[in-house]
Nucleic acid binder design. Structure first.
Lengths: 217, 217
DNA sequence: TAGATTGTTAATCGATTAACAATC
DNA sequence: TAGATTGTTAATCGATTAACAATC
């Protein structure tokens, strides 16, 4: 039960947590009540030892001779990830990708709520996506003051990304989810998560051209 | 010049290559001719030592006392990644995300060509996206026989992803780029690159809720 | 030539795996 | 209780960093 979380957990561990939780969710749907680290190993591809090691960074969630309670562990990991609260999000750049995320985020992820969307394109300003009206990017700063968000999502072109990032930093968002195919500089304390699709595709090309099927990213 | 590439290069190294190349491209645009591992370190955030180590997995591209030729190194890394050829791609699932990728891929990435798109939704079948007509998913297998592709891109819901993956395996694609928020099983030899947006967002939530700005994914 | 910077080996650090005692 | 499986320590493995000789 008790979170240890004394020191810094390595990012490798943290990035495995969502997968654990995803698989536990599927088990819950199937009505599975308990699972051992060995069975989880088969489902995740990680070793049983690593799974036990990972989980014990945060606390002893299992029980000797029994394993882990699926629902309980799912909840624990959710808490660790900070999914026991709501995150308000603003999408900047409302092209296909921005729209995809607007729909996607609300569809798959309760807890993540898109509360505003911004663009510079007059054809997009004013239209409604998933119930959210696209606002003029020039009004973003004042909008964010009135309606603060936790996460800014950058779905613009490479060229605009840094300007957006700067304005999001001023707008007191806590984290930036960056889909623009470039690296951006962010202010002290800002959490940054990049989704570099072009890098991902290039990596795929590497493995294809080298005939090297080392699955799983 | 000469590729070593004797043994298997670690995936950690491979995943850094696209970033090197991306930054070299920007330097080319700026007209920069040469760069040292130290300067590259400042631009990438990796240590100079690591950069030299990484590159020397593939060959000695630098010159003592000089550094690296920007254009030359950019080309070399492109070759290593397998970007000296064309990749034909099929998109399965033509919602916002599929459409975003259809536009994105061709816009940013020469060398990656979307040649066909498939969906089950009658409202989407027949429409044209970026010049490609959306075809009925039920015809995918015969279409792929007539017009083979290298990469299949899964932009469907969780529930359909495995069926799509199976059909892509039969369709002789070489790699799968999976955007569905689930893990899929692929046949022997298939290259799989997952883009788990929900995992990425969960990771972002972790760092926000722990007030831990360990930037860069 | 002297200075700069690579290529490469050796040292360090961290992450993964193995093993097993604790315990349900 | 006996069996199963965790929690945790120790051993191994691999990746990163440091150092420096080679060389442009």
């Amino acid at each position: 039960m008790g979170m240890k979380a004394n020191g810094k957990i390595s990012t490798a561990v943290i990035r495995r947590l969502p997968k654990y939780r995803r698989i536990l969710q599927e088990l819950m749907v199937k009505g599975v009540e308990r699972i051992s680290s060995n069975e989880l190993s088969a489902l995740t591809g990680f070793t049983a030892s690593q799974i036990r090691q990972d989980l014990n960074n945060f606390g002893g969630f299992g029980q000797q001779g029994y394993g882990y309670n699926v629902e309980g562990l799912h909840g624990q990991i959710g808490n660790i990830l900070g999914l026991d609260r709501e995150y308000r999000m603003a999408i900047v750049g409302c092209g296909n990708l921005g729209q995809a995320i607007a729909n996607y985020a609300t569809y798959y992820k309760t807890g993540f709520v898109v509360t505003s969307m911004f663009d510079v394109n007059p054809k997009l300003i004013g239209i409604s996506i998933n119930g959210i009206e696209v606002q003029d990017y020039s009004e973003m700063q004042s909008c964010l003051e009135k309606n603060p968000v936790d996460i800014g999502i950058i779905c613009t072109t490479k060229g605009s990304a840094q300007d957006v990032a700067d304005k999001l930093c001023n707008g007191n968002v806590k984290g930036i989810w960056n889909f623009a195919p470039t690296d951006i500089n962010v202010c002290e304390g800002m959490v940054l998560e990049n989704v570099h699709l072009s890098d991902s595709l290039n990596t795929l090309a590497y493995f294809i051209s080298h005939n090297d099927p080392r699955n799983e990213a």
